[in-house]
Amino acid sequence: MKKNVLITGGTGFVGRHLTNLLVANGFSVSVLSRSKRVNTANVFYYKWDVEKQFIEEEAIQRADFVIHLAGANIGEKRWTKKRKAEILSSREQAAQLIYNSLLKWNKNLEAFVSASAVGIYGAINGRAICNENMQPANDFLGLTCQKWEAAANQFEKLGIRTVKIRTGLVLGKEDGFLKKLVPIFKLRLGSALGTGKQYMPWIHVDDLCQIYLEVIKNSMFSGAYNAAITDDTTNESFSKILAKVYGYKIWLPNVPAMLIKIALGEMSKLVLTGRRVSNEKIKQLGFQFQHEDLETAIKECLLK
């Protein structure tokens, strides 16, 4: 029998890529969805409703592993009081539903793997390189990620190997972080944001999915891991490279931070701040990133 991986958020950008990779590597995949979908040979869809704390029992009973990607997109809407509450609760409540279901049906897992973010180190600018042992920040981003990870940590109480993947900005074809930038840069209207000196820890979606695959296969993985390239990419250097890929040099001045704050409100911190992170911990377990050069990664995403 093939090992089964249950994915929350499996119909999203990362989830779709991950599903294909898992199937190609001999796993069967179960995807939780609000609406019933047509099953395929190796991908099974099950209904769930987080607000009502409902999930089809078979989805839990089949699972050998759970990869928890579901959660409100932190950069999709302005951070109103209501939106902040949605961001905080979405991943927590979904994790709680799975946890309660495991208890209810006396089911064990080989591993529970949860998405987190490098935002746990805070919306702060600085040259310090953040590793997994650093104290989390107490701003909105830091506290949000702490709560996401706390929801995952409760699975350890059940004796389940638990892993948190602190993800940077995800680059990929047709979606991810580049999707919002491409229309502007294609028109040769791209420019850096604010000072442009804020760091941008990034990762190619293929590397991110390979990390999840490796975590499933390798029982040595446990705890938190940064999933981002360790380099000196800033918003300014990122913008210059993206413009270069489209065949021009940036000619516009930086977008003033004040305009970004007016447009995005508190959410402007997502683009006006950024920290470098270390991926040394995950490399020490033998993981090798295939996309470490930004220009090559962007070309692979946009030109192939």
Rank of each mutant, 00 (worst) to 15 (best):
N73F: 07
G190Q: 08
G12R: 04
Y246H: 10
E56P: 11
R188S: 14
S101H: 06
K52T: 00
L181K: 02
V277M: 12
K47W: 05
Y121W: 14
E149H: 00
E236R: 12
N25C: 00
K164T: 10
F238M: 11
E76R: 06
E92W: 11
I87M: 10
V14D: 02
F13P: 05
K244V: 05
A152I: 05
A137L: 14
K84W: 13
A63D: 09
I216F: 05
N254E: 04
K157A: 15
A152D: 09
S33H: 09
V271F: 06
N125T: 09
Q288W: 02
K299G: 02
A192W: 05
Q53N: 14
V118I: 15
T144W: 00
T19E: 11
L303R: 09
M258L: 11
W148E: 03
T19Q: 07
P201A: 07
F185A: 03
G142Q: 13
D206L: 13
Q53F: 14
K3R: 11
V5G: 13
E86H: 05
V163E: 03
I120N: 09
L181T: 01
E214Y: 04
V50E: 11
E57S: 06
K249W: 02
R62G: 00
Y46P: 04
L208C: 05
L187T: 02
Y46N: 09
N25V: 05
N25A: 06
V182Y: 03
L69P: 00
G247E: 12
Y212E: 09
E174M: 01
R83L: 08
G265H: 08
P183Q: 02
N108Q: 15
